[in-house]
Design a protein around this nucleic acid. Sequence first.
DNA 1: CGGCAAGTTGAGCCAGGTCAACTCCGGTGG
DNA 2: CCACCGGAGTTGACCTGGCTCAACTTGCCG
Lengths: 254, 254
Amino acid sequence: MRPPAIPPKCGQCVLYTDSRMFCAQLADDEQVELSGQSRTLSMKRGDTLGDSAISCWPIVAVDSGVLSLQHLLQDGRKTITTLFMKGDIIDLRDLSNRNRGALIALGNVKICRLSPKIFEQVVANNPKAQKIVWHNLRDQAFRAIDHSADIAKKQALEKVASFVIECHHRQDTEPKNSHLVKIPLRRIDLAEYLGMQPETVSRCFKTLQKRGILEAKSLNLLHIIDDLRLQRIANGEKEPEIPKSPNAQVLKSA
Amino acid sequence: MRPPAIPPKCGQCVLYTDSRMFCAQLADDEQVELSGQSRTLSMKRGDTLGDSAISCWPIVAVDSGVLSLQHLLQDGRKTITTLFMKGDIIDLRDLSNRNRGALIALGNVKICRLSPKIFEQVVANNPKAQKIVWHNLRDQAFRAIDHSADIAKKQALEKVASFVIECHHRQDTEPKNSHLVKIPLRRIDLAEYLGMQPETVSRCFKTLQKRGILEAKSLNLLHIIDDLRLQRIANGEKEPEIPKSPNAQVLKSA
DNA sequence: CGGCAAGTTGAGCCAGGTCAACTCCGGTGG
DNA sequence: CCACCGGAGTTGACCTGGCTCAACTTGCCG
């Protein structure tokens, strides 16, 4: 089909096979050149790209899995600030002055580290590729903005509800109408991402189940039973509280 | 100097006069064309660009002042998610599926709404301009990420300290060595940005003053006395607590 | 089957939210 | 020039959501 040999390592990568993604928009010669100067890498849970790795290879494209960006404060508190998933292109060039953080895999992750030089060159010359990469970056920015809004003003239950919805939204390949959501992180990581404690996360999932909004197929696989109420909660509408003891009625009028 | 008449409205705008910014990198004919298709606008506190304004003019460049992006939840809770300041270029194209928010001025703000068509054209053809706008977007993304980290894990005092430092950092023109910081928002807006209550913000500033770290020249003008300790607090190091009553010593060993 | 990490449950406590009262300040009009 | 007003900011007292700590259960891997 495509005359110049496409490097075998690219043949399976979503960035190449999915037409909405970056590499799929490259001309053959661009693809060959970029590929030749790039390095794929498989990571497993806990594998880290630290400062040194990042300054060598500051541009990372995610093929599959969930990669997190983590910050650390002096006293050991850790936060997961962003989740990168397939198709995201992470540009960490010249972050010198910022106290960034490390890229840490939350499961099995496949990435491709792109040569900054070729990347830049391609972006400058290929408008279609440029558009995709621009769109992706904008997406990252707005996700971060949304996330900070969630974290700032929502309470625990609302955050968890929002997260479930976002997961459903960003869901891998599945058609959207499926009511199944896979949570692609451990509870602990989720807690760090949402800025809360694992205990609290656990309690929130419990509450959503008790109210008949979610059903747990397994720890990380949920069935959304009542989409509407889930969205209401995520948006901060208070549900009429279910009184804790069934006979302790709340009487409005005396 | 520049032969084709530069539109007078651009002559005073930082985007044009500061060589590190977008319009300064345009060729004369690009500048004339972009300018011709763009609209400047002066806003005062509370002025809002809502959904309709944004969908007409989705690209906004900030000349001066502080512009905020605000989210709203059902029950009226409001959050300021991002602060845009001079030089920022905000690209709000096709946000259809997101429950974005409005751009609201927090003081006097001058903006320029750019024609998406010409903007895109310029970005595609002018690599220098492209680089600037790319860098700016990346900056916005990382600011959002940092902000969400701050909000997620820091406690009130730490957030305020971080904010003061960030202000100092992004400070208008001042040389960095000046120890004066201007807070360019009202307390209420600051509270909304940091995800806390105005009362709490007030108490935090008070604490920083009592500890001799800041001194208030006026409400919005601060003198940083102890830069180091301010940074320590912002990074989550606990200060040895000053016991409230001076004779109630904390004894480690019995 | 044993060992360890992840997840859950319960009890108690505190940072910060909430509410109400008060002060401060800039603008307005008599 | 002063009295008045309204919104912003501050202060104090109280209350609660979610953090903490500790004990327990579950699930996974060798």
